[in-house]
Structures are given as structure tokens and as C-alpha cells.
């Protein structure tokens, strides 16, 4: 009863394709509908992914390759603990860090994390203080030899129109601190153009003096193997005021702060998906409804429902391909615009 398999009718596709080409505006509008749908989904997804990545990069910039962090339950941690770590526990890959939140008094003000780091211990943890200085190492020597010298991210310097040698006023508690920009950090933040958090970096001695830390630091960053964790537990952690936490756990607080931000982006992404699907569905429905008479005539001529379905699917794929290519280009363009907002 059925025609032999594998036989390709060519007058049916011809009739369908001619309709598309003889009604260019309908075809164009259908493609535009799909293009918009794809562009909306893609652009929101790009913005969402980029923001998430920027956050991760920002967190990584601050924590680096740290696996564990030694903290004091009483707040700051005594530097004698740092010495004990090296001598008693034999942990050599460790870096003392002073971390404070400040407000940079430029324009409406920028909230920033001030990091006081030991350049000699940092190479294993974060690379921006030892390798990524712009120009030669004059700034590094300045950072070490002079007081109140800081490094700032290059992108932030560009945005705040700061150059090397400029003085910055930082609000810390009730007081105002003055620091000088000694160099710029080429941070990974430029990957997306979005910044979750700004940070300033100084030599740990400068930070101790600025924030009156005396012989204390905020925490000690560590890169530990399981056996070293065991060693620290037996020696250093005999002092009940000290605690060893994983870097992931330390980041959890910051992560929870940005959870709402991520939730909003996810909601927006889902909304974009629904809007996009609706646009695509409408475009395809419009395309089929417009050709209802032609499809009915083909049925009357003896074309089976299956052949009509295959024909409609083939034409939909054709229109969708044009729309998708345009949508990808448009989506990337829109995504970039949204990231710039």
C-alpha cells in the first residue's frame, strides 16, 4: 500500500520552499522571532555565566591556591603561631595575611578589601604580588621599602582614573588612612568586565602599621597535604583558641552574601528561557498557520500526514537555522551590552 522506502519526493519540498521564497516577509518575520528568542536566552545566559565566573575569579584572586586557613577564635592570630607552624609543625608553605574592609574615598566611594601580604611567602599562593606587576620590579621594591604603598587592580585604576604615584584616602572604622599607589595589578577581573569586589594590596608590614595590628595578623593561609593537616592538629591546634578551616569554608560567608545576586540572575535566566521559548513557539506557529491552505491543498492532492509533517519539520529547521545563527550573533552582542551595564 505504501510507496517504497527511500524514495524522495521532490515536488513537495519544492512547493514548500517556493512558498517561503515567494513570501519573504513572512519567512523573515518567522526567522526574526526565532532570532529574538535565541538572542534573549543566550544573552542572559552569557551575563549570568560571566557574573558567576567573575565572582569565582574574584574569590580566587583573594584566596589563591590556599587549601586551609588558620584562624583564631578570638579574632586576630598571634605571629608567634606563624613561627611555631614553621618550626614545630614543619609547615613551610604558609602565608600570614592581614585582611580589612575599607572604603576608598573616590566619587561615591568604593568598598574594598585591603590585603596585607608577605611578598616572600606569596609566590605559592597568589601570583599578582610577585609576577604580575606592570613594568619592571621598581614598584615591588618601593612596596617593600616605603610605608603606605599599595597595589591596585589596573581596571579599577582605569575606572577611577588613578595613576602610579596618586594618593588614595581610605575610610577604616572612624579614621581615614592615606596610601600611595605604587603599582597596578593585571587582575583576572578583566575576563568579564564585572567586578564583585575591589581589593588593595600592600606589604604585610605596611598593613600592620596602618591597622595597628602589632604582632597579630588576620589569618594564616596554608597549602596542606592530609599528613600536614594531621601534624598541625597534633601540635598547633592543641591551643583551643585556634582553628583550622578549609578555604572553601572560608569563602562560604562571601558566597552566601552573593547568593541573592545569583538567585536573581538565575530567575532572570529562567524568565528569558520562557520568553525565548514563547517567541520561538509563536514564530513557528505563525509560519505553519500562514501555510495552512497550502498544506491542506497538498493533503487534498494525496500527500500523507507523515509527508506533511516531514515537510513542515524540514522547513522549520531551515527557518530555525537562519534564526539561530542570527540569534547567536545578536545574543553575544546583547550579552556584551548587558555586561557593560
Amino acid at each position: 500500500m505504501y510507496p517504497p522506502r527511500g524514495k524522495i519526493d521532490h515536488f513537495i519540498p519544492k512547493a514548500g520552499l517556493r512558498y517561503l521564497f515567494t513570501h519573504p516577509w513572512q519567512t523573515f518575520l518567522s526567522s526574526i522571532g526565532i532570532m529574538l528568542g535565541v538572542a534573549v536566552i543566550l544573552s542572559i545566559d552569557i551575563a549570568n555565566e560571566s557574573s558567576g565566573k567573575a565572582f569565582d575569579i574574584s574569590m580566587e584572586s583573594v584566596t589563591g591556591k590556599t587549601t586551609h586557613r588558620l584562624l583564631s577564635r578570638q579574632g586576630d592570630i598571634d605571629l608567634s603561631t606563624y613561627i611555631k607552624l614553621r618550626t614545630e609543625a614543619g609547615i613551610t608553605i604558609s602565608a600570614p595575611v592581614i585582611e580589612e574592609n575599607v572604603k576608598i574615598l573616590i566619587g561615591n566611594g568604593y568598598t574594598a578589601t585591603f590585603l596585607g601580604l608577605d611578598p616572600f611567602s606569596e609566590r605559592e599562593f597568589r601570583n599578582f604580588i610577585s609576577a604580575d606587576l606592570t613594568g619592571d620590579n621598581t614598584e615591588l621594591s618601593q612596596l617593600l621599602s616605603s610605608n603606605n604603598k599599595v597595589l591596585i587592580p589596573e581596571s579599577f585604576a582605569r575606572e577611577a582614573k588613578l595613576t602610579i604615584g596618586d594618593t588614595l584616602s581610605l575610610k577604616w572604622g572612624d579614621g581615614v588612612l592615606r596610601v600611595v599607589c605604587a603599582g597596578l595589578i593585571k587582575s583576572n577581573e578583566d575576563v568579564s568586565g564585572n567586578r564583585i569586589e575591589q581589593f588593595l594590596i600592600s606589604d604585610i608590614e605596611t598593613a600592620r602599621k596602618l591597622f595597628n595590628k602589632g604582632n597579630f595578623v588576620s589569618h594564616i593561609d596554608l597549602i596542606l597535604t592530609p599528613s600536614e593537616v594531621e601534624r598541625i592538629t597534633k601540635t598547633i591546634l592543641s591551643n583551643p583558641t585556634l582553628q583550622l578551616s578549609t578555604a572553601e569554608k572560608s569563602n562560604e560567608t562571601a558566597k552566601s552574601m552573593t547568593e541573592a545576586f545569583r538567585l536573581n540572575l538565575n530567575a532572570m535566566s529562567l524568565l528569558a528561557l520562557i520568553v525565548g521559548l514563547f517567541l520561538i513557539y509563536n514564530a513557528m506557529t505563525f509560519s505553519v498557520v500562514q501555510r495552512r491552505r497550502l498544506l491542506a491543498l497538498l493533503r487534498a492532492a494525496g500527500v500523507t500526514q507523515k509527508d506533511i509533517f516531514i515537510q513542515v519539520m524540514a522547513e522549520s529547521i531551515f527557518i530555525a537555522s537562519i534564526g539561530t545563527i542570527g540569534g547567536i550573533v545578536g545574543g553575544i552582542f546583547l550579552g556584551k551590552i548587558m555586561l557593560g551595564l
Binding site: F11, T22, A301
Partner: peptide, 19 residues
């Protein structure tokens, strides 16, 4: 009920092709 996007000849050829 001729197929408007096919020529006269193609309308006849479609009937031939379908059978």
C-alpha cells in the same frame, strides 16, 4: 485546489510522483 507554488506542469508531475 491546484498547488499555487507549483507550475501547471509541476502540478501534474506531483500527481505522477505521488503514484
Amino acid at each position: 485546489n491546484l498547488i499555487p507554488t507549483l507550475t501547471v506542469n509541476e502540478n501534474l508531475h506531483l500527481a505522477l510522483e505521488l503514484t
